[in-house]
């Protein structure tokens, strides 16, 4: 059995909600409380395994990523890295752990220091652990070419690059220390398909060479599919389905996953307007629907879905949080 690299247990991250009163479903005027950005998430990531996370915009993916790396303080729950609880570490211990845990942020521009040159941005995490300047410079040169840029780009400032070039600088920075775990939040959203392929191939090679593990967050299902052995689907702060990549894409079980997989835009202009749509509005993460959080928009919802919240349970090859999976499968 492979070792568990990362264990996330009942993780919650709430943000204070601003302003105003609102009506609950029963029509009672209540005071705004909190944004349930991540609301009880648990999963294991094994060594040499990659996980993908997909879900609606605003469902909590980036918050989950930042909380796992303790860039946000969890509201509740525990995180273990190789059986060591990291939610308990002192800031000094955490600082020493950082080079092993890296992240590529969704907005590369805002995560790159505008006053630093590319060469210093990329070198920074490495120079914390490698004191030999020559080695650092060599490694920076090597990696910049690997991500499809040229040495010439090393002298530039972030604003002198295109969006996709900046994204590759962020990726180079995150992998230069050969970390154990890299969380990639929309890592290739600004790259054309060929450059994207080059980066994804590189990440896979590095995994073979150095045993890196990835958690990839992306709206691009083919990116997640290539990068992950398992995929977790999030809806409104919770995981609603998690399973092996191929099975989940080809045979989604949760009603939300079905709709998600049904609205992937195909690169074929002759097939337009086939895309599935989610009916109704995205519910507010402040005022979470009762029962199953997907019930106001679910085409299969029944009475039970309105009152009781489904837990993740094992169904064949995966975990699904839906009361009616078996019934839906039969129909």
């Amino acid at each position: 059995m492979a070792k568990v690299l990362l264990r996330v247990e009942n993780l919650k991250k709430y943000f204070p909600a601003k302003g105003g009163l609102f009506y609950t479903e029963k029509g009672i005027l209540a005071k705004a409380s909190v944004i349930h950005a991540v609301d009880d998430v648990s999963f294991n990531l094994f060594e040499n395994e990659n996980l993908g996370i997909v879900g609606e915009s605003g469902c909590g993916k980036s918050t989950l990523a930042a909380t796992i790396l303790l860039l946000y303080k969890p509201t509740f729950g525990k995180i273990y890295f190789y059986d060591k609880e990291i939610t308990q570490l002192s800031s000094e211990e955490l600082r020493r752990l950082r080079p092993k845990l890296q992240m590529v942020f969704q907005d590369p521009y805002s995560s790159l220091n505008p006053r630093m040159r590319v060469k210093d941005i990329v070198a920074e995490p490495l120079s914390l652990i490698e004191k030999n300047k020559y080695n650092v410079t060599q490694k920076v040169r090597e990696i910049i070419v690997k991500v499809g840029l040229r040495e010439e780009h090393l002298e530039r400032y972030p604003h002198e690059l295109s969006a996709g070039q900046r994204q590759r600088v962020a990726i180079a920075r995150s992998i230069i220390t050969n970390p154990k775990l890299v969380i990639l939040d929309e890592p290739t959203s600004a790259l054309d398909v060929s450059t994207q392929a080059q980066i994804l191939n590189l990440l896979k090679d590095l995994q073979k060479e150095y045993g890196m593990n990835y958690i990839s967050i992306s709206h691009n299902i083919s990116v997640v599919s290539y990068m992950s052995d398992r995929i977790a689907v999030m809806y409104l702060g919770k995981i609603v389905e998690i399973g092996k990549t191929e099975d989940l894409i080809i045979r989604p079980k949760h009603p939300y996953t079905k709709i998600l997989m049904g609205s992937i835009p195909l690169p074929d202009p002759k097939r337009r307007d086939y895309m599935m749509e989610v009916i109704g509005e995205t519910p507010s993460p402040v005022n979470i629907p009762t029962g199953c959080r997907f019930h106001p928009r679910c085409p299969y919802a029944k009475e039970i879905c309105k009152v009781s919240e489904p837990n993740l349970r094992e169904i064949e090859d995966r975990l699904v949080a839906c009361h009616l999976v078996e019934e839906i499968e039969k129909s």
Binding site: G148, Q196, N201, Y226
Partner: peptide, 26 residues
């Protein structure tokens, strides 16, 4: 032609994704 043939496929995992050889001109 090269760009369109680099579109990743959804199903059927390939070992390597197709890329365009060489690099963008300086």
């Amino acid at each position: 032609k090269d760009l369109l043939s680099s579109i990743p496929k959804l199903e059927g995992k390939s070992e390597k994704l197709p890329t365009i050889k060489g690099s963008v001109p300086n």
